[in-house]
């Protein structure tokens, strides 16, 4: 995370990729209690990743990362369950265990990845959607995507950022 915040995008990608299975375990655990469906679990993971991303400036690098991540995950999972009108009881302890001692959930992960989450992208403005699709689904770098779309790199960067913020907002409101 330190490297990521210092601008190392590859380190950031590795961190987020490593985080997804842990979040999935947390969400599945809550899911078992509340009866969330698998696609809702994937939504909760994406919402949490977005929150981690958009709030990464609130992590104090002098503090351990796990409690910070656990608090965000707990907050988002509770949110997701509450939106579905179910009571959920979560305490922070099991999350920290999971974050500290990960193990494989790969098969499940691959299966869940195939499931399409809510089509929230369609609700973004065309400009933001185009920007996010270019850097995510087509996996282009900001510079390549900007060249392909015929826009300035700075403008694309703003569109991506705004698009991600709108996406986080949509997740928050989606039921």
């Amino acid at each position: 995370m330190r490297a990521a915040l210092a601008g190392d995008n590859q380190a950031y990608k590795r961190l987020l990729t490593a985080l997804a299975p842990f979040l999935r375990k947390i969400a599945l655990r809550a899911c078992a209690r509340t009866g969330m469906s698998a696609s809702e679990v994937e939504d909760a993971i994406q919402e949490t990743l977005l929150a981690v991303h958009l709030k990464r400036h609130t992590w104090d690098p002098t503090q351990p990362l796990a409690p910070w991540l656990a608090a965000i995950a707990r907050n988002k999972v509770i949110d997701a369950a509450r939106r579905r009108g179910r009571r959920v009881e979560t305490d922070i302890a099991p999350f920290e265990d999971i974050l500290a001692a990960p193990d494989e959930t790969e098969i499940l992960e691959r299966e869940l990845d195939r499931q399409e989450a809510l089509r929230l992208l369609d609700q973004l403005s065309p400009k933001q959607r185009e920007a996010i699709e270019a850097v995510s689904i087509r996996g282009q770098s900001l510079r390549d995507a900007a060249a392909a779309l015929g826009v300035k790199e700075g403008a694309l960067r703003v569109s991506v950022h705004r698009g991600l913020k709108s996406l986080a907002e949509l997740y928050r409101k989606s039921s």
């Binding site: 994937e42 994406q46 990743l49 400036h57 900001l142 991506v160 950022h161």
Partner: peptide, 22 residues
């Protein structure tokens, strides 16, 4: 959107930094 796609988008957005809380 797949989670790995989202991660790619988040990585691309890593350069946009928020102001520190202080």
């Amino acid at each position: 959107m797949k989670t790995e796609d989202l991660i790619a988008a988040l990585t691309a957005d890593n350069e946009t930094k928020a102001a520190p809380l202080s």
